[in-house]
């Protein structure tokens, strides 16, 4: 599960103050909020990329507030995918496993099964440059899930996609979340997308996170 208690942090002139949020384990939560309200900053705090001033973050029952990003067991899919340009799609997918010193054959197996599940098996030898937006997001999703994290943070991954690809990605995200059982927190400014994806909805406005009704 993801549990945030009374979180405060400063980011330049921008500040989050007293944010609390709880996502039950194995659920798909969506956090809605206008652009610039601090959604991304909150995700970065969960991932350990922003230092927290006060409050606590628990992931899968562990207090990770002071842990480094690598120690938190989160998968992170940023808005622009941020694929590693010098590596092939297969190397991107296997990156977390390579860092964990998995044997090459096991990395290959895991990468192949991820690629199958995400429908990107035909792209494995390609470089990220030249992938379509949807393809890039699939690779970013696979890369984040490779090491089987307990928590998955998705930062508006559907933003730059056209309508058809968007719908495919919505279906894919739901299917993958259900099959892996990962606890997902997806932020978006798109209410329709939120309702399609989330089984737990939150609204981020005026510096407060509140539960939103799925109507």
């Amino acid at each position: 599960m993801i549990e945030i208690q009374n979180l405060s942090l400063r980011n330049g002139s921008f500040a989050l103050d007293g944010i609390s949020l709880a996502v039950p384990a194995h659920r798909f939560a969506v956090l809605m909020g206008a652009t610039g309200c601090g959604k991304t900053t909150l995700l970065e705090a969960i991932c350990g990329l922003k230092t927290v001033a006060s409050g606590a973050i628990h992931l899968a029952g562990r207090d990770v507030t002071r842990l480094r990003p690598a120690e938190r067991g989160v998968g992170y899919v940023p808005q622009d995918a941020a694929l590693f340009a010098t590596m092939s799609v297969a190397e991107n997918l296997g990156f977390a496993l390579r860092v964990r010193r998995w044997p090459a054959t096991e990395i290959r197996q895991r990468v192949d099964s991820l690629a199958q599940e995400l429908g990107i098996a035909h792209l494995l030898d390609r470089r990220p440059l030249g992938l379509s937006g949807g393809e890039a997001q699939r690779v970013a999703l696979g890369r984040a899930l490779a090491a089987r994290p307990a928590v998955l943070c998705l930062d508006e991954p559907l933003n730059a996609l056209d309508a058809d690809t968007r719908q495919e990605m919505v279906d894919l995200l739901k299917r993958v979340q259900a099959s892996t059982g990962v606890t997902a927190l997806h932020v978006t400014h798109d209410r329709a997308e939120a309702k399609q994806l989330g089984d737990v909805l939150f609204q981020f406005s005026e510096g407060k996170v509140t539960a939103a009704k799925p109507d």
Partner: peptide
């Protein structure tokens, strides 16, 4: 940042 979350 992504690399850090991936365990680096």
């Amino acid at each position: 940042q992504v690399a850090l979350t991936l365990g680096c």
